[in-house]
């Protein structure tokens, strides 16, 4: 439910902004890793029609979701498999980055 609300909030922000005003991606480990999410979840400039929006979601909410996916406490199709590719610290950094970008 919270994902749905945030997805709408992100959609509103995106439609209000200009497609040309792209934010520059910083050159660091977390920012680079986070770009991997875009192929399914979309990005600052594009929202996926079927995957939940993850950018702009509260960092703690996102981190909790990733840990629950990683430990199979939260059922998923592929996110359990993907989140196990990262340490808890890396997931925390990714959640922080995605919440702000």
């Amino acid at each position: 439910m919270s994902f749905r609300i945030h997805a709408l909030a992100v959609a509103l922000v995106l439609t209000a902004g200009s497609a040309v005003a792209q934010q520059r991606i910083p050159l660091n480990d977390t920012a680079l890793a986070a770009q991997g999410c875009n192929v399914c979840h979309g990005s600052q400039s594009y929202l996926s029609p079927t995957m939940p929006a993850i950018r702009g979601v509260d960092a703690a909410t996102l981190y909790t979701a990733l840990i629950e996916l990683k430990t199979d406490k939260r059922p998923s199709t592929i996110m359990g498999r993907i989140s196990r590719g990262y340490s808890d610290e890396q997931l925390k950094a990714l959640a922080d980055y995605l919440s702000k970008n």
Binding site: C40, S48, T50
Partner: peptide, 20 residues
């Protein structure tokens, strides 16, 4: 339902990777 969800995500992946 899980197989159907993955079929729907297939469509979402395509739209997103094209944009990306």
């Amino acid at each position: 339902a899980q197989r159907k969800a993955e079929a729907e995500y297939t469509m979402g992946w395509y739209a997103s990777i094209i944009a990306d």
